[in-house]
C-alpha cells in the first residue's frame, strides 16, 4: 500500500525533471555507425560487385521484402541480375546483413528516406549499389572461395594449394 503511494509520488516528482526528448528535425541525434538504416550493396576492394546472389538475405528476411535473381558472367562470377528491396515493407531488422556471407549487403546510419509515394520506396540494384566496400574494407569473398573467376584461377585463393595433378603417381 505504501509502495503504491510511493510509486505515485515518484512519478509525480518526475514533473520537475529534465525532458529526455531530442527534438529531431531541429536537433540532429547521434547515430552510431552500426545503426540499422537504409540498406546498401557494397563492392569488393577491387571495385566489382560483392553480392554473389546467394539468396540468403531474401531467405532470412522476415517480411520477404528482398527479391533477386542470380546470374553469372562468362567466367563464372556470380552476381544478381536484379536486386530489389521494397523499403515500404522493410523493418530494418538487419538479418540480411547478418546472413550475408560476403559482406555485400550492409545497413547504414541513414534513415531519412521518407517518400510521399510508396513506389518510390522500391529500390533496385542501381539504387542500392554504392561504389565502396562499406564497413569491411578488406574482405573479398572470391579471394577465399574455391570458385575460379576472371583473374583468379583454381588454387590461387588464400590458403589454397595449386590444383592437383591427377596424372601424378607420386605419393
Amino acid at each position: 500500500m505504501v509502495s503504491l503511494l510511493k510509486a505515485m509520488w515518484i512519478i509525480f516528482l518526475h514533473m520537475f525533471r529534465k525532458r529526455e526528448t531530442i527534438l529531431y528535425p531541429e536537433q540532429k541525434p547521434y547515430i552510431p555507425p552500426r545503426w540499422r538504416g537504409r540498406i546498401i550493396l557494397s563492392r569488393d576492394p577491387d571495385g566489382a560487385e560483392r553480392c554473389v546472389a546467394c539468396y540468403l538475405c531474401a531467405a532470412v528476411c522476415p517480411v520477404d521484402c528482398i527479391a533477386l535473381q542470380a546470374t553469372q558472367d562468362e567466367y563464372g562470377r556470380r552476381y544478381p541480375e536484379f536486386f530489389r528491396i521494397n523499403f515500404s515493407r522493410c523493418i530494418f531488422c538487419g538479418f540480411c546483413e547478418e546472413a550475408c556471407p560476403t559482406y555485400a549487403i550492409q545497413l547504414t546510419p541513414d534513415f531519412e528516406m521518407c517518400e510521399y509515394k510508396r513506389p518510390n520506396l522500391v529500390y533496385e540494384k542501381e539504387d542500392l549499389l554504392i561504389s565502396g566496400p562499406g564497413k569491411y574494407p578488406d574482405y573479398n569473398f572470391y579471394h577465399v572461395a574455391g570458385l575460379a573467376i576472371k583473374g583468379k584461377e583454381k588454387g590461387e585463393a588464400e590458403n589454397e594449394t595449386p590444383p592437383v595433378d591427377i596424372r601424378s603417381l607420386l605419393p
Binding site: I11, F12, H14, M15, R17, K18, R19, E20, T21, L23
Partner: peptide
C-alpha cells in the same frame, strides 16, 4: 503523461 515520463 509526457510530463511525468520526462518527454513532451
Amino acid at each position: 503523461l509526457g510530463l511525468w515520463q520526462d518527454r513532451y
